[in-house]
Design a protein around this nucleic acid. Structure first.
Lengths: 222, 222
DNA sequence: TGCATCCTCCAATATTCCTTGGAATAGTGT
DNA sequence: ACACTATTCCAAGGAATATTGGAGGATGCA
């Protein structure tokens, strides 16, 4: 019994290739980065603190799972998510993990640090319309350039302390970053609060903004 | 460098537990079954053609990934999906696999056999309202009992040939089963067509019906 | 053409995962 | 208490996957 492989088993094994691609923390970290902007292997390896060979191997696995696609430019190869469906799948996985596994919820709050006050997307849109808020993107400049909330100001977190004067003193600031698992915006809000600014963070980030199909602006600041 | 584990890496490794749970064809097959109805370990092992120890081990992995939950009844333990979110994640994974991987698409059509004509959910709802269609559930009786399209008739595929007389001869039949990756409905439609009945299949199945939050009826036929 | 850069492929090791049969556990019924 | 059933736990061998350094390929530039 069971010594031959049925079509059904074959089908499930094929589908499992996608599951296998999602079965490593390193690869999820790479997906998390790619959900923001396309990147070269070297850049991904550096951001995820991996050796180049290791990063390349993981990227091959992701590619075999159909989750990423590549583009060559000179000697470099840029990886990107294969489609927005992949971002949705990743967000879905992350949400199920956070909702159903207590250890994940603990690890997330541990990573994000003390909680800061949130603003929902709808609130933010209202207040942008009224013009009484500054939207602050604290992700690295390349990610801002690849797509950001329309009208947002870009100050990467590591430059924020030095560039405080660029932010109006009397307007509330709403910071955002990659998504619900990103530490940049909470860090920024804590820094701004210490300096006496009124600041809150968007409840999620660019990943969820894109999935909600809200307008996205591309390009570097003038 | 990299000799210590950061909070970020820990968080991604935790989330990857869910990915690991999805990283095996056997486990996906178990999820596919559990999306229809709760079942005991023995029943799952039999349906998926696994040894009981093996099935139990896979179920433990799914449980550690937060995807399934259990309930004890006497000496047996019933496994079920931990929540509808899990069904959504599974469907999402399956759809990304089918859309992005040519091999998966091939394996699926290979498994499902020659294509039969489809009816969309909306069409079906319209025609049910007009009363000019018989909705036929060809899944095993336990799955029908656990939840089916309101008004559907239950004739499991393996009894269909013997129970043809229970179906009116002059009304079109729309058969459905577990979902887009289920072979029962296409098999049923091919059988019915050979016997001269007008039959088509619902484009998807109970999994997608539930995800669309359409009404579900439970209980065995009278 | 020669050299530099970036990436992939390869080979070897370490690690993790899968499967299996049998022992251990928990509950049921006598 | 005992026998019985369903499930989990355990141990061990085999399979698959991860990591690493270095070789090999492709591209660009002088």
């Amino acid at each position: 019994m069971g010594e031959h492989v049925t079509d059904k088993q074959l089908m499930f094994e094929e589908i499992a290739r996608v599951g296998k691609a999602l079965a490593s923390g390193k690869r999820l970290e790479l997906l998390d980065l790619l959900a923001q902007a396309e990147r070269t292997v070297e850049a991904l390896a550096k951001s995820a603190r991996l050796g180049v060979s290791t990063a390349s191997a993981h990227l091959q696995t992701l590619k075999q799972g159909g989750l990423v696609a590549t583009r060559r430019e000179g000697t470099r190869i840029y990886y990107r998510l294969a489609s927005p469906d992949v971002a949705r799948l990743y967000a879905n996985l992350r949400d199920v993990a956070t909702t159903h596994l207590a250890d994940v919820a603990v690890a997330v709050t541990e990573f994000l640090g003390p909680e800061v006050e949130h603003v929902t997307r709808d609130d933010l849109l209202d207040r942008v319309r009224r013009g009484d808020v500054v939207v602050l993107d604290v992700r690295p400049a390349e990610e801002y350039a690849a797509g950001h909330i329309p009208g947002a100001v870009s100050i990467p977190l590591d430059q924020l302390a030095d560039r405080l004067t660029e932010l109006p003193a009397d307007t509330e600031i709403v910071a955002y970053c990659r998504g619900v698992n990103c530490v940049l915006a909470p860090d920024a809000v804590r820094l701004l609060s210490e300096r006496g600014r009124a600041a809150r963070q968007l409840a999620d980030g660019m990943l969820e903004w894109r999935l909600a199909e809200l307008p996205v602006e591309a390009g570097s600041p003038p």
